[in-house]
């Protein structure tokens, strides 16, 4: 096994996987690495608060065992901003009041970025009309459908949708953060 494939890259930094194979990627980030930006809402794949990016795709880190992510690139909310400069999606969430308590927010933001890649790859959703399209359009209905795995209990849905739509229109949604730049 090469050195590269025996470590997990977290926000660009190589870290050794946990010894305990039961440890979820979420708990590994939060409890071992002290990266608390990724949130635990249900620990059973029901709320989306733990969404992060692995090799550019969004996953639920509570349903991922950390030891299975060696050789992969994990990007969390902590790596989206460039120093003092917020990621455009982060700024859009502030501008459109896309949060209240802030607990689902990192997951919503990472999920939106991951969604952009799915659109570019033409991955259809439940409401996509043309399944053969090379690239999916982000209508309001598509956006709501594709973000429905990320729950918000405060009721900031309108602001979240507006923020994501704005970033998408500006062509800034697919920027997957500092680690990828």
């Amino acid at each position: 096994m090469s050195a590269e494939s025996s470590v997990i890259r977290v926000n660009g930094t190589a870290v050794a996987p946990p010894g305990d194979p039961r440890v979820s990627l979420l708990d590994f980030l939060r409890e071992t690495l002290g990266l608390h930006g990724t949130k635990k809402g249900c620990d059973q794949g029901g709320c989306g608060a733990c969404t992060l990016l692995v090799d550019g795709e969004r996953i639920l880190s509570c349903l991922a065992l950390a030891v299975q992510y060696t050789g992969r690139d994990v990007v969390t909310v902590e790596a989206l901003a460039d120093g003092d400069r917020l990621h455009p999606v982060q700024q859009a969430f502030i501008d459109h009041d896309g949060f209240q308590c802030g607990y689902c927010t990192p997951g919503q933001i990472c999920s939106a970025i991951g969604m952009a890649g799915e659109l570019e790859r033409g991955v259809p959703s439940h409401v996509t009309e043309d399944l053969s399209a090379k690239r999916a359009e982000l209508t309001a209905e598509e956006l709501r459908e594709r973000m429905s795995g990320n729950l918000c209990r405060c009721g900031a849905h309108n602001g979240i949708v507006a923020a994501i739509a704005k970033a998408h229109q500006a062509g800034q949604l697919s920027d997957s953060g500092r680690a990828a730049r």
Partner: peptide
């Protein structure tokens, strides 16, 4: 006015109760 804690929240840098840590802490 936008929320004063907004930048912390969108960065995932606002500390919630389960994100305080003590030396020797158990679960």
């Amino acid at each position: 006015l936008p929320r004063i804690e907004g930048p912390l929240k969108v960065r995932g840098a606002a500390p919630y109760a389960a994100e305080f840590t003590f030396a020797g802490m158990v679960y």
